[in-house]
Design a protein around this nucleic acid. Sequence first.
DNA 1: TGCAATCGGTTGCATAATGCAAGCAGATTG
DNA 2: CAATCTGCTTGCATTATGCAACCGATTGCA
Lengths: 169, 169
Amino acid sequence: MNAELRSGCPINLSLEVFGDKWSLLILRDMIFGGKRHFRELLRSEERISSNILADRLKRLLEAGMLTRADDPTHRQKAIYSLTEMAICTVPIMAHLGAWGRKWLPVSEELSIRAQLLEEGGPAMWAKFMEELRAEHLGSGPPTASPSVRATLRAAFEDVMQRKYGKTTA
Amino acid sequence: MNAELRSGCPINLSLEVFGDKWSLLILRDMIFGGKRHFRELLRSEERISSNILADRLKRLLEAGMLTRADDPTHRQKAIYSLTEMAICTVPIMAHLGAWGRKWLPVSEELSIRAQLLEEGGPAMWAKFMEELRAEHLGSGPPTASPSVRATLRAAFEDVMQRKYGKTTA
DNA sequence: TGCAATCGGTTGCATAATGCAAGCAGATTG
DNA sequence: CAATCTGCTTGCATTATGCAACCGATTGCA
């Protein structure tokens, strides 16, 4: 993959793949936000700039975390998909979210999903991972009935509605 | 803490605390390696340089992940301690280690501990966290009989012995 | 047919972070 | 009393990041 491996420690190697401020956020948006296109990812909560996004997508492709395909419905759209390797970061995401929620000044609307995921525990994570496989790897049945992402999204919109009276776009 | 928070998302906020290539490695060495002093941390597997180490220790102190105290036995030694906040990263470390072990070219000797921690599961993590609290926060009984870190260390040395016939310094 | 919006990026440039090597003053050890 | 060890700092070169503007091709719509 690359030559400059600092050590064979599993934690270090993990950090060499996504140990920066943006890679995990991109994966987060793909996993939890269902984003698949460059322009969608560009509209992240944290306002990633396009050159950084392009660079990170390239790195994640090279690392085997993503694949890229042409969108059949739109000649110049690219579809990014999670690989199994990336889908397996769900438990890490869940723990990161839980830890952040416990120790840092999170906003209610952005942490409701982390809360549900924490409460759902490993069983919910596994179900979610199955859904992601169906969506990104084309394996198994199309989608389980009440999808985890839909549940998370609904909870998010409830909070938004209650707090701001907004209807999410 | 700092002003430039990019968003209130728990994952993003977590990354703002330790989303770089070094912070988590420092915590790893303190948690799993039992390191408490600057010069010990300098001898990391990945060869951190002293200015970066100094900077990261400062950041981790400011973030509330560490505390710093004078060593009573040596006037110019500083002792760094984990806070509860940092001890709570153990499950994240465990998952990161497990993920790295599954997907990346880890070395056997450096991943044996991740393997044990993975097999031990949440119960082992909890026990380990209790030991860390006793060691760093001075709470509870001195140390549980066969400490988790000792177990991990013994397994590491077994592998080293078997692979290289080395006795670890 | 035209025209604006959208597509996945690039490019140039300023600023910030990183990495290396050397050094430092005080404390401790032999 | 000299060598070693302590937690750092400094200077400097290289690399990464962030911003804004831009690109040609493609699309939807009138």
